[in-house]
Amino acid sequence: MSTVPVPVAEPATAVGRVRKRLTSRTASAISLVIALIWTVPTLGLFISSFRPEADIKTNGWWNFFTDPKVTLDNYQDVLFGTSGSSGRLATYFINSLVITIPSVLFPVAFCALAAYALAWTKFKGRDWIYVAIFALQIVPIQMALVPLLQFFNIFALEDEGSFVQIWFAHTCFAIPLGVFLLHNFMSELPGDIIEAARVDGASHARIFRQVVLPLIVPALASFAIFQFLWVWNDLLVALVFVPGADSTPLTVRLAELAGTRGNDWQRLTSGAFVSIIIPLIVFLSLQRYFVRGLLAGSVKG
């Protein structure tokens, strides 16, 4: 038995102590400074995107404060140019949306259904299936590219079919993590609710729709945000599965913007800001789910 008196103000647990120290005034000041430092490169990029080409190429963005010259040429160039040598990002923006939206909706739907089945229906080998799905998470995406491409060849998909390919690919790659997240969140739901619904004569379909779905909205939202950001920012999968220059997403176009020998890199500044608008909107409008959902399924492994 210890006789050392524990100060009353000091919380007993380690987590509590860390928490207390992190909420002090100095800690806040330090985190504020860190946040500022982290924002500086983005700010520099943002300022650069409004500077004339010659300025961008010859001196740093901080010279803007002593010699402010503002132009919208960079944005005009990357968004609305019509030749192959300008950005035409407005067109590719649509492509990105066409690729991203189904690539988010499909996995969210599939994973929610699969997670329900794995968490609340009882059948033999259920846990093994769950482990097997999650184990697929370990397979690096790069290993699956060529076999998947060969698999698509069986169907001889052309032109418009290329969208089907990329939706399929993104959905496949999202399922392991999605099932894992949603399954853990769903199995945390109190069994009593589900039992009560069943006693009242509800079928699985009805329980899923009317009981489970409303309860897992935060988890669905956070998974959807993850998936959205991943697909929107994806370059590799798009490069492999979207043949033809006309249906590629924004990221692929952005990678080409600087020109054959990188001599037009001033466009990258404005191009970058055009491409982050949508992710920013998505993140800001759904961030309350994001914070809540970050912990979804993470407690139980």
């Binding site: 030749s83 192959g84 040598s85 080409e256 020109g259 054959t260 037009d264």
Partner: peptide, 8 residues
């Protein structure tokens, strides 16, 4: 690999 102005 040819793109941009040269592609046009």
């Amino acid at each position: 690999s040819i793109r941009d102005t040269e592609e046009d």
